[in-house]
Amino acid sequence: MAGNVTIDRPEDGVALLTVGDGGDPGHLTTCATVDHLANALDEVIADGARVIVLASSVPGHWLEHASLDDLLNLVEGKEASGDGSGWFRSLQTINRGTAVTIAAVNGDTSGGGCELGWACDLRVAEEQVRFSQPEVIIGAGTGIGGTSRLMRLIGRTVAAEVVLTGRPLTAQRLYELGGCNKVVPTGKAVEAALELASVIAGNPPQAVAGMKKMLGEAEDLNQSDGIQNDQTISQSLFANPDSMATMRAYNDRLAAGETMDQAYWS
């Protein structure tokens, strides 16, 4: 355990991080909690995690927006539960670290919590969940991707509605807009996310890491530069000895008469 973040390792290459109650009366996310999350992310990656699932043990809540006590104290130069750097460390590791990240959203999420979820590679949400960016209601703004990253996920029109009204989207609506990979019944987010994690962790590690890098870097590039970057990463994978051995093994199976359905997906 790292602070109030519980670490489980359900199978080789997969880590489950479950965020507990940080002590805020409104179940908002304290700076101390994101410090613990950042440390837990570093710990499991150093220990070999290739896929990380993020969940919550707080009934009705995933990661909510930043603790207002902490925000006010930081702005006024007073002592907060942490220095705030955990938000940025967590965000960087989730979005650009070596491990694939899956948000198992098993409760409402808002503000900075939502922004950490938008930074994940994949999102699985339970049917009762609501997503919101309520910063405008309290006179603030989305500071770590609630506008720019959400706009890329679901488009400018609906993103504008979300950030300008502060009102929530349902999990089903988010799924229909392409911002969520799967909507599952209440209580099933972690199970579904771990199933997805198992599939990803079963693929060659170098290829998973390469595709994670490709996806992340493509966010900052225009199409021409993105395609060139795809080529650079892809060429390094084709030349990787482990990749070459895997390709030969699959080639033998296809040559022996297996179909792609049999060789790749059965």
Rank of each mutant, 00 (worst) to 15 (best):
Ile45Tyr: 13
Arg149Gln: 09
Cys120Ala: 05
Ala159Met: 08
Gly113Glu: 00
Val14Thr: 07
Ile138Gln: 14
Ala256Gly: 04
Thr33Cys: 07
Leu71Pro: 05
Thr30Ala: 05
Glu258Val: 14
Arg173Gly: 15
Pro185Ile: 02
Ala103Lys: 05
Asp69Gln: 14
Lys212Cys: 00
Asp21Gln: 10
Ala189His: 01
Ile138Glu: 15
Val184Cys: 06
Ser57Glu: 04
Ile200Val: 04
Val208Ala: 07
Glu127Arg: 08
Gly202Glu: 00
Ser110Trp: 15
Thr101Arg: 15
Asp108Tyr: 12
Ser85Cys: 08
Gly179Lys: 03
Ala32Trp: 01
Val190Phe: 01
Gly48Leu: 01
Leu177Ile: 07
Pro10Thr: 08
Glu161Trp: 15
Asp8Asn: 06
Leu68Asp: 04
Pro10Phe: 15
Thr98His: 15
Ala125Cys: 13
Leu91Ser: 15
Leu169Asp: 12
Asn39Gly: 15
Asp252Trp: 03
Val34Gly: 05
Gly97Lys: 04
Gly179Ile: 02
Ala38Gly: 05
Val184Arg: 02
Arg50Ala: 04
Leu41His: 10
Leu63Ala: 04
Thr6Ala: 12
Asn251Trp: 02
Gly60Met: 00
Ala171Gly: 07
His36Asn: 12
Tyr175Arg: 13
Ile144Lys: 13
Asp108Ile: 01
Gly77Trp: 13
Leu221Lys: 11
Leu16Gln: 01
Ser224Pro: 07
Ser132Phe: 03
Met247Asp: 04
Ala104Cys: 06
Asp12Ile: 07
Leu16Met: 07
Asn73Phe: 14
Ser81Ala: 09
